[in-house]
Amino acid sequence: MTKFSAASAAQAGAYHLLSRTPCQDSVSVFIYEEGICAVLCDGAGSVSRSEVISRSVSAHLCRAVSECFGQWYESDDESIRKLIAYVADEAVKEKDPSLRAECTLILFAAEKDRSMLVHIGDGIAGDAEHVISLPENGADEWQTFFLSSESALQHIRITRDPEWKDLLLLSSDGLSSVLYDKVTGRAAPAVGIMREWLQEDAAEAEARLRKTMHHTFMDYTGDDMSVILICRQ
């Protein structure tokens, strides 16, 4: 029997703390019998109410995928892309009809021995050794793709049954360059330490994640920080 454990945290970076802007990263995790759905969204920095957008999208997608993972998994890629974009759009419209799903997405869902990784925009997914899913930026390297982008359906990347060892880590762009080397894709020693935390205890790992973001990571990124750690037994 496959069992999953997870720890997650999202925290405003120094830039947003100083400008009194809420954290625009959001994480949602739901663990159930033999299954998990973990979603990380990073709201567009230039958009107002970005925190509402990322929170709504991550929560709705987490619920929608975990409720019927089997159907999602068995659908073709094109249908999955359209469904992801649709659920995200509905989620933000429910909050405010003027909003658009201007956020990136990294979603990992698994049930028993089947799993799926969905990624659009920047941020990184990786294991304790190397990167599994790289960020994708636009024509200009400071631009990225959001679920609301006109070309979103061409840029939602779907990987079925991604291979990873011991730990799967999802991170927004604020921490991806701190945790993985951009050239070699190798994980920093910090990722191995996080794996030890989660293998010991999920609640303890979550507390340590928050503390480390505040006391260590914040010195090396001004951006919002969010991480989801996942282990399977």
């Binding site: 360059s177 080397d181 951009k182 020693p189 330490i193 996080m194 030890e196 480390t212 990571f217 090396y220």
Partner: peptide, 18 residues
């Protein structure tokens, strides 16, 4: 098991936006 803390030596630095 004694859990380790993450320090500046355990992360990549100077890898962010330029």
């Amino acid at each position: 098991m004694k859990l380790r803390d993450i320090t500046a030596n355990d992360i990549y630095r100077g890898n962010g936006p330029q």
